Amino acid sequence: MDKAKKYLSIYKITGDRVYLADAVKAELEEWLLSGDVDYLHKAMAVIRTAVEKEEQDAD
């Protein structure tokens, strides 16, 4: 999840959605490597929370 956090940090600074997509890809990669079915839901929750927080901060 470290790679995803890095991309989310860059996304917060730049606002460039490419980094958001990279964060999602990194989370999915971690999920695939882990073999944990629940990891996908956890990863989606982390990303969703970060995006919602960013949107609230922008308002």
Results as ranks from 00 to 15, higher is better:
Ile10Met: 08
Asp59His: 12
Ile13Met: 13
Leu32Cys: 03
Thr49Ser: 13
Asp16Pro: 10
Lys3Cys: 07
Asp2Glu: 14
Ala50Trp: 09
Val24Gln: 09
Ser34Phe: 03
Arg17Met: 06
Glu27Tyr: 13
Glu29Met: 04
Glu54Ile: 01
Gly35Thr: 00
Ser34Trp: 01
Asp38Glu: 09
Lys5Ile: 10
Ala21Lys: 10
Ser9Val: 07
Ile10Leu: 12
Ala4Met: 01
Lys53Asn: 15
Trp31Ile: 08
Asp2Tyr: 01
Ile10Glu: 09
Val51Ala: 10
Tyr11Asp: 02
Arg48Glu: 13
Leu33Thr: 00
Arg48Asn: 13
Met1Cys: 07
Asp59Leu: 14
Asp57Asn: 15
Lys3Arg: 15
Val46Phe: 12
Lys42Ser: 07
Gly35Pro: 04
Tyr19His: 11
Leu8Gly: 03
Ile13His: 11
Arg48Ile: 06
Asp22Ala: 14
Asp38His: 02
Val37Ile: 11
Leu33Glu: 06
Glu27Thr: 08
Thr49Tyr: 11
Asp57Gln: 15
Lys3Glu: 14
Asp38Ala: 09
Tyr39Thr: 03
Glu29Pro: 00
Ala50Leu: 05
Ala23Cys: 04
Tyr39Gly: 00
Ala23Trp: 00
Gln56Lys: 15
Ala26Pro: 02
Val37Ser: 08
Thr49Asp: 11
Val24Asp: 05
Lys5Asp: 11
Gln56Arg: 15
Ala43Phe: 05
Tyr11Ala: 06
Gly35Ile: 01
Ala43Gln: 00
Ile47Gly: 05
Ser34Pro: 01
Val37Asn: 05
